[in-house]
Amino acid sequence: MDFRKTFDTIPEEFDKWRPRYCEELYNHIITCTDLGPGKAALEIGPGTGQATKPFLKTGCDYLAIELGEHFASFMENKFKAYHNFHIVNGDFESHNFETQKFDLVYSAATIQWIPENIGFPKVYDLLKPGGTLAMFMTYSDEKSGNEALYEQIQEVYKKHFYVETKYTCRLDYEHVLNYGFTDLNYHEWKKERVLSADEYVDYLAGTQVEHITLKEPYRTRFYDGIREAVMRAGNQMKIMDTIALYITKKPD
């Protein structure tokens, strides 16, 4: 199964429940790249644009490439007021950018869908000398804040979570240095979320790729089991988020 368009089937739910990033992350990238008018930025796979507006607001020439047609339509409507907003509904791996070059290429939890031997060299070619690649994502810890509940939820997974295809996309971000990039730096910021049972079920159903593919009767049994476990634990699921940023450069 090709998971790449899974989220595109539920753009409204995905937009509502996907965790947001933090202003500190955006400010760091914008400061490092001196992004603004006269500079060009490319976002790979923006989804519904959770990580788009801060870069648009700099006045840079912004381009997104988005594989999902529903996501692309969602983005066009969401950011239509920005004269510097442009989007292509296409596949980054095969799209011909012709002579376009960028000061910044960035990915918010999307570049891991692209094989590194395709993604990293293509980004390198698209960047201007001295240009920046920023890759960021959220790592969510659902165990530390609720260990007893976490163990109960694992039992629900064992009993009811059956999917036809496992999600296996993984990327070692440090490998970017094998493709000509230099000066790789890592930064992180911490956030905390607290969700009710219904909110946690909606979060799983709207942001976790394997969960979206669950079929009946497993789907109902699984989500009912998750909801009941959280309700027994006081109707509260605490999630500790680490917002991680890998930022690197193409040499001058």
Results as ranks from 00 to 15, higher is better:
204 L>P: 08
33 T>M: 11
220 T>C: 11
102 F>S: 05
200 Y>N: 05
98 E>W: 01
112 Q>N: 00
213 T>A: 02
90 G>E: 02
166 K>C: 06
195 L>E: 14
192 E>M: 15
22 C>R: 13
63 L>V: 11
248 T>C: 07
175 H>A: 10
121 P>Q: 10
148 A>H: 10
171 L>D: 09
225 G>E: 13
156 V>A: 04
147 E>T: 15
51 A>F: 08
182 T>K: 12
6 T>V: 00
102 F>D: 08
115 P>F: 03
148 A>L: 12
178 N>F: 04
138 T>Q: 13
189 W>C: 00
127 L>P: 00
190 K>G: 00
126 L>G: 02
251 P>E: 12
106 Y>M: 14
10 I>M: 03
213 T>M: 12
184 L>M: 08
151 E>R: 11
112 Q>G: 04
177 L>W: 04
10 I>G: 03
177 L>C: 04
136 F>E: 14
117 N>G: 03
158 K>H: 14
197 A>C: 14
36 G>I: 05
161 F>L: 07
201 V>N: 14
103 D>L: 09
75 M>G: 10
138 T>G: 11
192 E>K: 08
111 I>C: 09
99 T>H: 06
59 G>M: 10
152 Q>F: 02
232 R>Y: 03
173 Y>L: 06
171 L>Y: 06
105 V>H: 07
110 T>Y: 00
185 N>C: 14
243 I>G: 10
248 T>F: 04
189 W>R: 11
71 F>G: 02
242 T>W: 00
155 E>S: 11
51 A>C: 07
139 Y>H: 07
250 K>W: 12
121 P>F: 07
222 F>M: 13
66 E>G: 05
180 G>M: 05
114 I>Y: 03
234 G>R: 01
209 V>C: 06
93 E>C: 05
194 V>Y: 01
233 A>H: 07
240 M>Q: 14
93 E>Q: 04
165 T>D: 12
223 Y>C: 06
108 A>F: 11
33 T>F: 12
78 K>E: 15
58 T>D: 05
40 A>D: 11
